[in-house]
C-alpha cells in the first residue's frame, strides 16, 4: 500500500460531506448557489487528486 493512496480520502470526504455540510443556497460563489458550488468543487478536487496520485504511483 503506497502512502500516496491516502490522498484519495480528501475527495471522498468532499463528496460525502457536500449534502451534509453544504446544503444551503447562500453564499453564492462564482454565481452558483453554495451547494452547487461545493458539489462542483468536490468533482474538481477528485480529478486533481487522482491525477496527482497517478503521477507518483
Amino acid at each position: 500500500m503506497q502512502k500516496i493512496y491516502f490522498l484519495v480520502l480528501i475527495p471522498i470526504l468532499f463528496i460525502l460531506g457536500a449534502p451534509i455540510f453544504a446544503n444551503k443556497v447562500t453564499p453564492y460563489i462564482l454565481g452558483l448557489p453554495f451547494f452547487m458550488f461545493f458539489v462542483c468543487l468536490s468533482v474538481l478536487v477528485t480529478s486533481l487528486t487522482l491525477l496527482t496520485i497517478n503521477k507518483f504511483d
Partner: peptide, 10 residues
C-alpha cells in the same frame, strides 16, 4: 448526476 460518476472514478 454529477457526483455518482465522480465517486465511480475513484
Amino acid at each position: 448526476i454529477l457526483v455518482y460518476g465522480t465517486l465511480a472514478n475513484i
